[in-house]
Design a protein around this nucleic acid. Structure first.
Length: 470
DNA sequence: TGAAATGTTGGGGCG
DNA sequence: ACGCCCCAACATTTC
């Protein structure tokens, strides 16, 4: 007789979950537990949109677990204390979990490992969130890659996809354990601003698997072109499911690769899609090797860039989607209402904030952190530093998106902007992306795109010069 | 996974 | 018919 605890964190699934499967295989009784301890993730505790998702994902996980024999035990408090408490209650002798890669969580998990070891409790942790453990991919010199393309080439070379593990058929739990009602975690908003989230998403493993299947069956073949179109549903929309571990990148890659093997027509789309999984891998690789990048630029020189702070009126206008530029405003409103924004538009709004407004990427990253249902420290950090030009494989400083041009290119018939910007109703078609140029019209944007571009180029050019003597 | 400025080409209008 | 010019379309360079 032995009892094992499976400590769920962000691996909220039954399929392809090594920690769960191994615990079930090695112990006679298994206790699945979630411990709510957001302060242990400080200063990056989940934002409001993430909390909304987490609540519903935990509810879904509880249903899934209950269906195979035992409910999810929910606790709140210090992770070490709660685990020790559960061990005392049940006589468990092992704890299983899936690794995470945020700096604060790595440090916390180390403390947990030490505390449990001191009580002779075995700990077993697994990679369940990534195709490659960070550190597994490095260049010939042994240095971590800082450029995506060689990183991903090396990774693909090493990739040996195995079929995902099936979910355990039956779990023998331990009866009579206290569990907090989910509501007591206070993850849901007090005022009901989450209508748009409900309309757009269904958290949970079942939904994640269905979404993957739907995407692979009907979209991945056109992914190469359609992924850039915010007016279409051409992307997988798996990011929040992946973030919370409702599905693993191995499952995603496996299903996509199987489909490509059956149909040469979608081959190209699958390759591009997998490279997006690659960016997610690359982001985690960078986060582990350069953890300081969550709030400081990877490129040293950018420490002296004179960013404006995010406490002014114009930052608020960006957040609320009130800049007067339709593509920017549409994206920011989509984010606010659905907790998500199309990736093409993310790049455009980020470029606008950091280059046209010259506001720090950290301010933008914080806003995304609080509003995205897929907020992920690794991906968010990489994305913002890439756009600002201060990170790995960064966009060169002169690459400044023009939101009008981007709109004309990727939302040519103005479907996307008109979906989110009702004020465009009387603007003639063809002028929607720059409504201030049409007759009868809406106000000028809060910044002059051409002028601010020139100012930014000058500011970034100065950065390349040696710092003034002091 | 840029945009704007600058350079080049070639069709067609026109005297 | 021919040369000239205009300018759209495309290509290259620059930031």
């Amino acid at each position: 007789m032995s009892t094992a605890i499976v400590w769920f964190r962000r691996d909220l699934r039954l399929v392809d979950n090594a920690a769960l499967s191994e615990a079930v295989a090695n112990a006679t009784h298994v206790i699945p537990v979630f411990i709510h301890a957001p302060e242990e993730e400080a200063p990056w505790q989940p934002g409001a949109a993430s909390n909304w998702w987490l609540h519903h994902s935990l509810a879904a996980l509880d249903r899934q677990l209950s269906a195979v024999g035992t409910p999810l035990i929910v606790r709140a408090g210090d992770s070490v204390a709660e685990l020790e408490c559960l061990i005392a209650e049940t006589g468990a002798d092992a704890v299983y979990w899936s690794r995470l890669y945020e700096p604060a969580i790595i440090e916390r998990d180390q403390r947990v490992r030490a505390a449990l070891a001191a009580r002779a409790i075995a700990t077993h942790d697994f990679n369940a969130a990534l195709l490659f453990e960070p550190g597994e991919i490095s260049s010939k010199s042994g240095a971590p890659y800082k450029v995506f393309t060689p990183f991903w080439r090396a990774a693909l070379h090493q990739l040996q996809l195995q079929a995902p593990r099936p979910a355990p058929g039956k779990i023998d739990g331990v009866a009579g354990l206290d569990s907090l009602p989910l509501e007591e975690l206070k993850l849901l908003p007090d005022i009901p601003w989450d209508k748009g989230l409900h309309a757009a998403w269904r958290p949970g493993e079942e939904s994640a698997l269905a979404q993957l299947q739907k995407f692979v069956d009907s979209c991945v073949g056109q992914y190469q072109e359609d992924r850039n179109r915010p007016d279409l549903r051409g992307t997988s929309r798996l990011s929040p499911h992946l973030h919370f571990g409702e599905i693993s990148p191995r499952q995603v890659a496996w299903v996509a690769q199987q489909a490509a093997a059956e149909s040469a027509a979608i081959d190209q789309g699958v390759e591009v899609f997998l490279s997006e999984i690659g960016w997610r891998e690359f982001a985690h690789h960078l986060l582990v090797h350069f953890p300081y990048t969550v709030d400081r630029p990877l490129r040293e020189g950018f420490n002296r860039f004179p960013w404006r702070t995010g406490d002014g009126e114009d930052f608020a206008a960006w957040c609320k989607g009130q800049t007067g530029i339709p593509l920017i405003d549409a994206g920011m409103r989509e984010l606010w209402h659905t907790g998500w924004m199309h990736n093409r538009v993310r790049m455009v709004v980020a470029s606008f904030l950091t280059k046209n407004q010259l506001i720090s990427w950290q301010a933008g990253a914080r806003w995304f952190w609080d509003t995205l249902v897929d907020a992920d420290l690794a991906s968010n950090t990489l994305g913002w530093q890439w756009t600002a030009g201060c990170g790995a494989d960064a966009a060169p400083f002169f690459r400044i998106f023009n939101p009008v041009r981007q709109g004309e290119k990727f939302d040519a018939d103005e479907t996307y902007i008109r979906r989110w910007c009702p004020e465009l109703k009387n603007v003639p078609h063809g002028a929607g992306h720059a409504p201030w140029t049409a007759d009868g019209t809406l106000a000028e944007p809060i910044v002059d795109l051409a002028l601010s571009r020139k100012v930014a180029l000058e500011a970034f050019r100065q950065l390349k010069e040696p710092p003034p003597d002091k």
